[in-house]
Design a protein around this nucleic acid. Structure first.
Length: 268
DNA sequence: ACCCCTGTTCGGCG
DNA sequence: CCGCCGAACAGGGG
């Protein structure tokens, strides 16, 4: 489920724990979500520490604890963060729980595609600094976009919009939403996009990212009724612009919905 | 029962 | 060597 805006929503679910100590850490050390980190060290270093701050970048989150301790969380396909009352007993898929005096901070992930990483040090971990610019930043501009599209010029644009180093935080539904708004067919090769199409792609990527954050980020509200997301999963979904049938298919290995009337393939 | 999936990584292959 | 594609990961839901 989680893309840019949903990640921001889930990040805030742990806000009640800010400034408060971790009384105990409960985790399942054998689970895949801890791949690359030592679960014993997480328990050892976080117990008794205070949750200080949290950040989100694209689909990634960083939680900072006192004593130079950092937890990175990626929600994968089915990860969720939530808060439960004090004394909460973890259930089957609650693989990482921070118990505090007043509540428990819970990470649940049924399919285990998510990831929890640990770093101990004075400064933020290298894996947090890596990655492309945030879509909301000045760095995500025409020059960056052109370079990225040309670097992956032989991949369909749908696949390129899903690449996290270029389109930080964009996932499957946002990608379809962006291409539909920009009137670009998802199968067009990225390198073949015209100058006008690139301009629209930049504008609509910024628009979908900022509007999703504004609408979904605070409380998971629904986007407006005229967004493609409300149609793309329906069996008989229609284009919100003129109600003609959407097409469905697999592009770049992912389910894709588009309007053949709005998103024409232009042969130049 | 069977098929589908809002993510990422990795091996194979062109 | 570069880069794309499909499979794999694992479980719940339709």
């Amino acid at each position: 489920m989680p893309e840019l805006a949903e990640v921001e929503f889930f990040r805030k679910q742990w806000d009640p724990g800010l400034g408060r100590k971790i009384a105990a850490v409960q985790l399942h050390p054998r689970k895949r979500i801890f791949r690359g980190s030592d679960p014993r060290k997480i328990v050892e270093h976080l117990t008794g520490r205070r949750l200080l701050r949290s950040h989100a970048r694209g689909k990634r989150m960083l939680f900072e604890f006192s004593g130079g301790n950092w937890i990175g969380i990626h929600l994968g396909m089915t990860g969720k963060l939530r808060t439960e009352p004090a004394g909460f007993r973890p259930e089957k898929h609650d693989h990482f729980v921070l118990q505090q005096t007043r509540q428990a901070l819970v990470f649940r992930d049924a399919r285990l595609f998510g990831r929890v990483r640990f770093h101990h040090g004075r400064t933020e971990p290298a894996w947090w600094r890596a990655g492309g610019p945030e879509i909301s930043s000045d760095k995500f501009d025409r020059a960056f976009l052109n370079g990225f599209l040309d670097r992956h010029g032989r991949a369909p644009i749908k696949a390129v919009v899903l690449m996290q180093n270029g389109f930080s935080g964009i996932g499957n539904w946002m990608a379809d939403e962006i291409l539909w708004r920009a009137k670009i067919a998802p199968s067009v090769l990225a390198g073949a996009l015209s100058s006008a199409q690139r301009a629209r792609l930049l504008r609509e990527t910024r628009f979908v990212a900022s509007e999703s954050l504004r609408i979904i980020g605070p409380n998971f509200s629904d986007p407006p009724a005229n967004w493609l997301i409300h149609q793309k999963w329906k069996r008989d979904g229609v284009c919100p612009r003129h109600r003609s049938a959407l097409r469905k298919g697999t592009i770049g290995g992912r389910t894709t919905a588009w309007c053949p009337r709005c998103q024409k393939i232009i042969i130049r």
